[in-house]
Structure formats: structure tokens, C-alpha cells
Design a protein around this nucleic acid. Structure first.
Length: 486
RNA sequence: GGUCACGUGGCCGAGUGGCUAGGCAGUGGUCUGCAACACCAUCUACGGCGGUUCGAAUCCGUCCGUGACCUCCA
């Protein structure tokens, strides 16, 4: 079966056949986090979406180089001269070194994504580790006539660029509209045009993170690192560039312009944008505080939810929506996902235990083909899940003797379902010890033991305590009651 | 204000000219000591108004509503 992958290219707003630049190899760049605060669930959705895409590409036989950056150089707070480096600001507030902040939140980011069972990218470069490349890139852009130095800072000349190229092609904006809609900000005197964006910013005396450059002691502009690092590791042109929808403009638009200005060609063949996770109907956002942190979700320690959810339940919940659709987060939706997830897991378990027949009453090959069809259609995980549930229905029918399956089909289906659930969607079996379920179980056990003790049935109460201890759980009696640690 | 999306049944969420999405919840059965799981059956739908068409939830227009971007943001 020829597997033809179709993906939605946001550059052209069309679903097109995916044809990598080099056959069987895929270069993929995804904008990573700015590590100055806790990664929230909305951030995670994007990274989980692209993890699924990365996994799918690998599953379909592509060799993928997946580059995702860590933005640790800080971005400007705003476009004004007084703009303050976000990381430096936080550092001053917490009395820490900037790199301490970076380290803390980078480690946290990795831990959270690991909990969600994300695979690490093949290269995870940092902005601070590529200052030289960024300075070289700026020089190239200046040499090519698309950048100019002004008072120690360097800006990208959008008007010049737009004479021969099309600034706004990715986000569908017209430069006239942008000019009309641009605000009158103070401190823009250095720029020739309000739309011009910084490639290099001269650091103020207070600014902590700074590097020497031909223009000034300063730091790279917002959009530069991605162009520098994607070019270095994936080449002047590569297959896929991903990121959150909110980065489309201006960040990705600027990347297109920078890459084109530096290398004389459009950097990216396929742009993929993952949609937002909303909370209370609004985008999750650090700046507005409309966020939910993954750890709060895993522990149930927050004001929005009455209970904890396993990371795999959350991942399954996200997979039930298409990556290009807005997904609204709610307790009800998550509860439904949790039950559906259990049903899927039960089905998989049941499949392994079925008693085979000499004939299959359903076309298992067609079932498996439907899994492929879903993923090949722009990574349609909701359809994949629907098709998996159809398989579960069949499995349960066999289990109830209302349908039959051959041993061969049983093996094939089990392998395929495992492939698509574990490898493609990255959903692993939840471990009971990691869920709130263990505490529910312990509550029951402790109640039984309490009753036994009330009845002076110490044989039972001691049996429970000893067996629990053997399993690594310590039961502690106290005046206030009984608690456990495990 | 400009640009672009979206509006599907009680909830979440696919699909996109004719053919059951799926999950959760509900209802009636089967199973069970009682449950849970599972199975069978079943109910609730495509924002409003126009248009194109033999036929539209699906295409076009328009209105209403919501959101994203236009400032750092996944």
C-alpha cells in the first residue's frame, strides 16, 4: 500500500501531498519555549501536537531531524528602547543569575514533557549557544542590503524587502494594513519604518544579558535565533517548520523574511501551526494569567478541577481534537476523556486474551487500513481514535461471542493498535501508582483495616499492614487516624 | 478599527455536496448476589436568513455570535 501523507500547509492554506526535499528524510523545526517561567498546559499542547507529528513521520518511515530550540537569551518586553530582557527582569526579581532561571525552567520543561511522554527532539539548541551564528546572520542580512545599523542596534528593513519580496505572505497580511494598524510607540526613532524589527539590540547599562558584536554590546533580536539555528542544523531550506498559531505573526513572518534575505530563498516548504488550548473560552496565556500548570493538573491541586488527572489522560484528551482546532479545556471534557481512555485500554487488554476462531467476522485489514488513513490525512488523531473505538467494539463483541477473529488477525490487530496508540499518539499505559487511583485504593484498604481493628480482628489488620509494607507502602497509625506513605 | 478563523446533539469533538463519525452523559434491555466491565437497542444536530443545486450541516451571500493575530506569548 502506497502511503501518501497529506498535510495542511498554512503558507498556502491548503492540504497538500507531503513531499520532502530529500526523499525519506525530513527536517523539522519547532519553536520551543522561552524559559523564564513555568510551562503551562497551553504550551504543552503545541509540543504534544508536534510530538505526535514527529512520531507519525517516523512511523511512516521517514528519518527525521527534529530541532526545537530553547529561548534562553530573552526577548524584548516591547519594541521601545527601554525594552527589558524578560529573563533579566525575572532574575532581578528573584535575585538569581539569569542562567539560573534558564536552568530551572529548562529542567522543569523537560520533566513536564517527559511526563506527557514526549520524545526529546534530536537537537535542542539554545539561543545563547548560538550568538556567533546570529551575529554572522545579521552581517549577511546587512551585506545583502536588508538590514541597517542605527545607534548600535540593527534593524530589518521591511520596506526594502517588500520591494522585491512579499512581507506578509505567511500570515496573509498586507504591508499597507500593517502600517495603518501600527501603533505610535515611543522610542522608535532608530527605525526607518515602524514595522522594521530588531536583529540586534544595543544593551542598556542595566541590561544583564549582553554579548559583544560589531555594532554594540547587546543581544540578538526576537526572531533571529530560530533562523540562525534552523539554518545551521537543517539547511537554508527545510521541510517543516512548526509552532503555535500565535507565533504565525510576527515571529514566523519575520523568519521567512530573515531566511529569504540572508539565503536568497524561502526557508520553509511546509508551515504547520498548532492551535490554541483555551480555558474558559480564552487562550491560555502567561501574560493574562489564564493558565493551568501541568503539575496542578497531575496533583489536582488547583481551583478549577476537583480531582487529579494522569498525564496520559490529558494527552488522550488532546489527541481527541485535531491539532489545528481550538480545544477548550474543562473538567467535564477531561472526565469524559478519562473514561474513554480506560475503555480503550480495556479493549487493548481484552484483545490479547481473545480466543481465536478459524474465521474473522470482520475485515481486520480494513480496520487497520483505516488507522493509516486517519493519520495520513493531516495527522487526524480524532478520526484515528474513532476508528480505534470501532475496533474496540469489535473486540468486545468477540469477547462476548457475538463475533469471531482468527489468531492471525488477532496478532495483526494487536500490533497495529499498539503501534498507533503507543508509537503514533505516544500514549502509554498509565501506571496505577502515578494516579489518584492508588489513593482511592488505599482509602478502601484502610477502611477495611479500620473495621477489622474495631472488631479486634488483628490478624486481618496486621496482614494488611505486613503485605502493604512488603509492597513498599508503610501504614502509620496515630492518634489522629491512619495514614500511609509509598 | 484591520486581517483571519470558527459557530455541529446535554458535554467534548470529527466530517464537508446525497451514505452511522467517535467518546462521555441519558433511556430501555441482557449479564451480575449487588455492582463495575461488556453487549444489544434507543434519544438529542449541524447559529439566523437568503441563494446555487435534483439534493447543503457541507458551496455562495448576508446577518448575528465567539475567538486568534495586529504588543511578549505555544
Amino acid at each position: 500500500m502506497e502511503k501518501q501523507l497529506k498535510i495542511f500547509n498554512t503558507l498556502t492554506s491548503e492540504k497538500v501531498l507531503f513531499e520532502p526535499i530529500n526523499k525519506n528524510f525530513v527536517g523539522m523545526y519547532v519553536c520551543g519555549p522561552t524559559v523564564y517561567s513555568d510551562v503551562h498546559l497551553g504550551n504543552c499542547r503545541t509540543f504534544i501536537s508536534f510530538d505526535m507529528i514527529y512520531r507519525s513521520l517516523q512511523f511512516l518511515g521517514y528519518k527525521v531531524r527534529y530541532v526545537r530550540n530553547i529561548t534562553d537569551a530573552g526577548h524584548l518586553e516591547n519594541d521601545a528602547d527601554e525594552g527589558e530582557d524578560k529573563i533579566a527582569k525575572k532574575a532581578r526579581l528573584e535575585q538569581l543569575e539569569p542562567m539560573e532561571i534558564v536552568q530551572k525552567y529548562t529542567v522543569d520543561f523537560h520533566e513536564i514533557l517527559k511526563a506527557f511522554n514526549n520524545l526529546p527532539p534530536t537537537i535542542e539548541p539554545t539561543a545563547t549557544g548560538h550568538i556567533i551564528e546570529q551575529i554572522e546572520l545579521i552581517q549577511t542580512i546587512i551585506d545583502n542590503g536588508f538590514g541597517y545599523e542605527s545607534n548600535g542596534s540593527v534593524y530589518f528593513d521591511i520596506e526594502k524587502y517588500n520591494k522585491t519580496e512579499n512581507y506578509g505572505e505567511l500570515s496573509g497580511r498586507k504591508i499597507e494594513d500593517l502600517i495603518a494598524g501600527s501603533r505610535d510607540l515611543d522610542g522608535q526613532s532608530e527605525k526607518r519604518n515602524p514595522l522594521d524589527f530588531a536583529l540586534w539590540k544595543k544593551a542598556s547599562p542595566m541590561h544583564i544579558m549582553r554579548w559583544p558584536s560589531p555594532w554594540s554590546d547587546g543581544f540578538p533580536g526576537w526572531h533571529l535565533e530560530c533562523t540562525a539555528m534552523s539554518t545551521k542544523y537543517l539547511g537554508k531550506q527545510f521541510d517543516i517548520h512548526g509552532g503555535g498559531m500565535d507565533l504565525k505573526f510576527p515571529h514566523h513572518e519575520c523568519e521567512v523574511a530573515q531566511g529569504n534575505a540572508a539565503n536568497g530563498k524561502k526557508p520553509v516548504k511546509y508551515w504547520l501551526h498548532a492551535n490554541m488550548l483555551t480555558l474558559n473560552g480564552k487562550k491560555m496565556s502567561k501574560s493574562t494569567g489564564n493558565t493551568l500548570l501541568p503539575r496542578e493538573l497531575f496533583s489536582g491541586d488547583n481551583n478549577l478541577l476537583e480531582k487529579a488527572y494522569h498525564p496520559m489522560v490529558v494527552r488522550f484528551f488532546m489527541m481527541q481534537a485535531h491539532y489545528r482546532s481550538v480545544l477548550d479545556f474543562s473538567s467535564d471534557a477531561l472526565n469524559a476523556a478519562e473514561k474513554g481512555f480506560a475503555k480503550l485500554n480495556n479493549g487493548l487488554e481484552t484483545l490479547g486474551k481473545l480466543v481465536p476462531s478459524i474465521k474473522s467476522s470482520e475485515d481486520v485489514d480494513a480496520m487497520i487500513a483505516s488507522f493509516y488513513t486517519a493519520i495520513l490525512d493531516d495527522f487526524n488523531t480524532p478520526i484515528l481514535i474513532a476508528n480505534l473505538f470501532d475496533a474496540v467494539k469489535f473486540i468486545n463483541s468477540v469477547n462476548d461471542k457475538n463475533a469471531t477473529i482468527t489468531a492471525e488477525d488477532q496478532t495483526k490487530l494487536l500490533a497495529a493498535m499498539n503501534d498507533f496508540i503507543r508509537q503514533v499518539m505516544g500514549i502509554k499505559n498509565q501506571s496505577i501508582a502515578e494516579t489518584g487511583k492508588l489513593s482511592a485504593v488505599m482509602d478502601v484498604i484502610l477502611e477495611i483495616r479500620k473495621n477489622a481493628r474495631a472488631n479486634k480482628d488483628f490478624a486481618t489488620s496486621d496482614l494488611i499492614r505486613d503485605k502493604m509494607l512488603a509492597a513498599g507502602i508503610t501504614i502509620k497509625d496515630s492518634r489522629e487516624g491512619t495514614s500511609w506513605e509509598g
